[in-house]
Write a protein that binds this DNA or RNA. Sequence first.
DNA 1: TTGTAGGCGTTATCAG
DNA 2: CTGATAACGCCTACAA
Lengths: 331, 331
Amino acid sequence: MNIYDISKQAGVSIATVSRVLNGSDKVSPATREKVLKVMEQNSYTPNAFARSLGLNSMHTVGILCADSSDVYLASAIYYLERELRYHSYASMLCCTGYQLEEKKKYLQLLLSRNVDALFFVGSNFVEDTEKNNAYLFEAAGKVPVFILNGYLAGDNIHSVLCDDSLAVSEMTDTLIKRGSRSPVYLYRSLSYSGKRKLAGFQEACEKNGISDGKGRAFSCPAPVHDTMTFLAGLEKDLTFDACITADDELAVGAVKYALSQGKKIPAEFQVTGYNNSLLSTCSTPEITTVDNRVEFMCTTAVSLLMQVLDGKDIPARTMFSADLIHRETTN
Amino acid sequence: MNIYDISKQAGVSIATVSRVLNGSDKVSPATREKVLKVMEQNSYTPNAFARSLGLNSMHTVGILCADSSDVYLASAIYYLERELRYHSYASMLCCTGYQLEEKKKYLQLLLSRNVDALFFVGSNFVEDTEKNNAYLFEAAGKVPVFILNGYLAGDNIHSVLCDDSLAVSEMTDTLIKRGSRSPVYLYRSLSYSGKRKLAGFQEACEKNGISDGKGRAFSCPAPVHDTMTFLAGLEKDLTFDACITADDELAVGAVKYALSQGKKIPAEFQVTGYNNSLLSTCSTPEITTVDNRVEFMCTTAVSLLMQVLDGKDIPARTMFSADLIHRETTN
DNA sequence: TTGTAGGCGTTATCAG
DNA sequence: CTGATAACGCCTACAA
């Protein structure tokens, strides 16, 4: 059943059928009714592919992330998809993992579907060298590109991100004000946002006269038990009375480490997480964390995309501040 | 840049270009090289829409779930997408929430994109009445439909699910054998799988001579604090020394309730979760739970889809058993 | 092995 | 307001 069949049955031309289909106002109410009735009777639905071919768009955007089962990324995807759907765009999801070659390869999967735009969720998509970012520039040559929680300067590339540096800096500052004399900082990766967080920690250390800020930051494995082991090992070389982490999962590990060592939280040992995810409230005691406003980030990004698709000019970079959520792991 | 431009530049017909594009073996190596070179030089990519129009497929499937930020659903989506991508299918994600009208509406979003198949993740898509399931039957009239963790009999509908009833029954049985005399069961919803789990609990109660099995099962709100409040209230009317739950988040709430009341886990109070999610190990003590094998479910479903697309005949229903994971909240 | 021509189902541009 | 007709870009018999 196609537009020709409908046009025949309704006794009009395909052009008229198409007009009815697209809600054009240049159709008389009478013929409109007639056509709609025939469509109804045949439960006709227009062919999306033919439509796309003519319009060169399927009203679909691509969402790339390293791992959609990560609690933080999962919620970002949730909000993005919701907002896009609200604007009647469909979302194609693609999890690329953390390897550059895979990212490139799976980007093609999306690009080959002619998506209208691309969201790269997580700063791990921004590589260190111009050359390794070539794939992003190339993508931006075809469709508008949005980087969430990361930043890269380039034509047709837009970044929406939280001021992670400031957030960690404030958090560290607060911890020190509340009694920590020797905090350590734990991170998983040094992506763009990873570096910014680290910088925040070091800045706060410096400001508070803690000289060896650099020597107090560590890359640490994330599964809870590995984090515990790591801290237990670290204890042999270094004294520390607080643990600032780059995400809630690391914080859970830190809490469990402290509990297993019989340290009192927060009196003897303070812990902070990042992301304000479910994990932070599932822990006992509940974890003080940074709310980096995923939902705001996603709704903002989608609304910016809509403006771009409207032909408007938008800033290359939009940054917003985080919120500190005080719970039971800090004084 | 289209197939005509390439054909002109290469001095061949569009048919030949198309053959090269599709890896036909009926092209001489010489002309193939020639054509490939021209494509390369112009960094030509075929237009997906035109292609789809002829083939009537974009190699894309739709994934529906209530809420992709839910830890369990998020991991299901992750595995589904991974497997589909492996078979070079793209995934369109759509979160419908729990309202029937929304489910119907957003199903259209996917159907209107002419996806090749549909995955409904979570048994909440299967409604109580034939009439309310009409939207599923209708969808199945257009493309193969897979229901994950739920079951509905119907043409072109395939279910892949874990034997939840058996799992909860075994878990309850184990708890009783390990000392519980008065367990309660907590659930969030009575979806298909929700009902099966509940049935498992009641069956085990009966088997073990606990007469009021029905009176010991409760619908309970999920956010951790609400669960705690609920149990604290329940305590006034009922004695219970163990809490079997329908998902890990409820279990976390139960653990926190016990801790807040100073009950010793597991000596005085046992708790079990469901899903073997990150939450179960982030809790302290770590939660005994049911591993319902999300990954297996997803890889199985995708592999079944591939068989369907291959024209093979597959069973309407595939069921597999769960695994009990013993941790620190049970004796 | 290669080329021609028709079809896929729309949308859009003209005339009328 | 309506209709004819040409795109849109690719695939695939069928011919050569």
